[in-house]
């Protein structure tokens, strides 16, 4: 994950009550979703950024997960996500990020 993004997430975790924070990912494939979720939940696997060893354990979801989709009004979903829900492998993405949440 981008180093500036990691710094910003670390700052947010220090600024806000962690219980109020939710991280939403938009990764296109399970490989990149796994790295992003791992970085936010257990720490940067490349040990390059601010989240190395951070173990923030922030609640993290892929935006295409059914749990998230259910909260988003249909018209907004159609405009912002639209056919991407068909193009990307939503089930695999959801399973990857859910698996990482279980490690929190």
């Amino acid at each position: 994950m981008d180093l500036q993004t990691q710094e910003a997430i670390l700052r947010a975790s220090q600024t806000y009550d962690k219980a109020d924070l939710v991280v939403l990912l938009g990764s296109p494939d399970p490989e990149s979703a796994e790295i992003a979720a791992e970085t936010v939940i257990v720490g940067d696997p490349s040990y390059a950024g601010a989240l190395a060893g951070a173990q923030l354990g922030l609640p993290t979801y892929h935006v295409l997960e059914e749990l998230i989709h259910a909260d988003i009004p249909d018209d907004v979903w159609e405009a912002q996500i639209g056919v991407m829900a068909d193009v990307l492998e939503a089930d695999a993405l959801a399973a990857t990020v859910a698996g990482m949440r279980a490690q929190a």
Partner: peptide, 30 residues
């Protein structure tokens, strides 16, 4: 699921997936 109502969201999008602004628009609407 009410996972998002009243929460503070960090949107980490990807250019080839769902972009940050698209995630942000969804989160705001929720």
């Amino acid at each position: 699921s009410n996972l998002l109502q009243g929460k503070k969201v960090i949107a980490v999008g990807e250019r080839d997936g769902i972009s940050g602004p698209a995630i942000a628009a969804c989160a705001k609407a929720a």
